[in-house]
Every structure is written in structure tokens, then in C-alpha cells.
Amino acid sequence: MQKVFSRPQALKDKQTHYCPGCGHGIAHRLVAEAVDELGIREEVIGIAPVGCSVIAYDYWNFDCSEAAHGRALAVATAIKRLKPQNIVFTYQGDGDLAAIGTAETIHTANRGENLTVIFINNAVYGMTGGQMAPTTMLGQKTATTVKGRDPTLHGYPLKISELLASLPSVKYIERVSLHNPQEVNKAKKAIKQAFQNQIEGVGFSLVEVLSSCPTYWDMPPVKALDWMKEVMTKEFPLGRIK
């Protein structure tokens, strides 16, 4: 009998610590599948962020480094410059990449480092208990915006992908979502493309992945998927940005 679905070699046989309905597990798997399909598991070096996915290295079956909160792209820059033959990527949440690490994000992109960035936008800070993220929706209630995000106090959801797209050294940006199987397939394709770009020496490539956090959106997992489709994708339109 032909086996048509199995665990990618780049993923360890390990139960994750993520909440039911969390998008991180799916995103980890998509990275692992892309790595396997491109046959690069033994060359890959992944940089895990500080956030809910801090121990992503416990799930991936290839070389990994931790990075201080927000500094994954600084760590990745150094590794890639020293080891251009390796495939180096970061996996970062919206707090990590678009708040505390904004300077590293913009400058790494602007230097045109030949890196792959998987950017998980779940509109909150998961790890620390559901506080406002730069990507939190207007009106969205979080632990630190109890009356909802108010643009006069908290600004608007930060579209860092669109900001980055304005830099000449940025070569590829696509926004994808994990809210249904069709979109998951598209996400996989984009992630694979971002790795393929690095293999070909194209330059800085980023995939923004809209991902669910049912726990801190205070929704059951299925409703969280609906909310992504109805609310998040309106603010963060899907598709190729650059």
C-alpha cells in the first residue's frame, strides 16, 4: 500500500506544547515540508524567536539557534555571512519581528541579506498572556487594550510587510493565511518559494503567515478561523506583496 501522508523528516516525532487550534504547529510543519522537498535539511540553520514558538528547535529536526527577543535577524545575518552555503531562516512572531525587533527587521532587509523569514502574525502576544501586538486589529480586546485597540492611543495595525516592500533590496514578500486547507496549501507554496529564493541567491524573502491564537482571541478554534477570514484578511490582504 502506498503511504501518501507522513511526518516530514525535518520534523521530530514529538507532541507540541501549543494550544488547541494554534497556527504555530501548522506553520512548523509547512517549514519542515518545504525543507524536505527542497532536500536541504542537512544545510538548514533555523533561528527560533522568543514567543510561543521559543522551543521550535525541539520540534524541527535540523540545526537551530535561539535568539534574544527581536534579534533573530541579527543572529541570522552573522550565520549566513559566515556560511553562505547554508540555508538560514528565522521564524518570528509579530511582537518579535514588528515591535521589539523592528530595527533588526528593517536593516537586515535593507542590507539585502540572502535570508528567508517566516513571520507569524497572530495579532497578539501569545507567550506573555495576550497583550496588544503591533498587528492587533482596531477594536480588538487584549490584556493591555481592555476596551479594544484605539487608533488615537495605540496607532493602527502595523503593516510591516508593506513597509518592507518599499525597500529595493527586498526581493520577495507574500502574505498567506492558515484559515482553511486551500490557504494552507498556498502558504506552503510561498514558504517553499522563500527558501528556493535563498538557494538561488535571490535575496531577502519574507512570508507573512496569518495564524490563529484562539486562546487569546478568546474564541473556540473554529470561530478563530472564521475571524481570520472575516476580519484579519480585510486588514491584511493576502497575496504577493512584492
Partner: peptide
């Protein structure tokens, strides 16, 4: 060898972290 003028001291020390993790004297 590799020289980078970083965007801040924060970035610089974290680049050193990456370089050292990759096994280089940094």
C-alpha cells in the same frame, strides 16, 4: 573575513552571538 557595521550595539552583539554559534572567532 566578515565585517558588518550594525544598525545598533544591540544588533552588533546579537550578530556576534550568531557568528559564535556558527563556530567563528568573533
Amino acid at each position: 573575513r566578515v565585517f558588518i557595521q550594525a544598525e545598533s550595539e544591540l544588533a552588533a552583539i546579537n550578530m556576534v552571538y550568531g557568528a559564535s554559534a556558527a563556530g567563528a572567532r568573533s
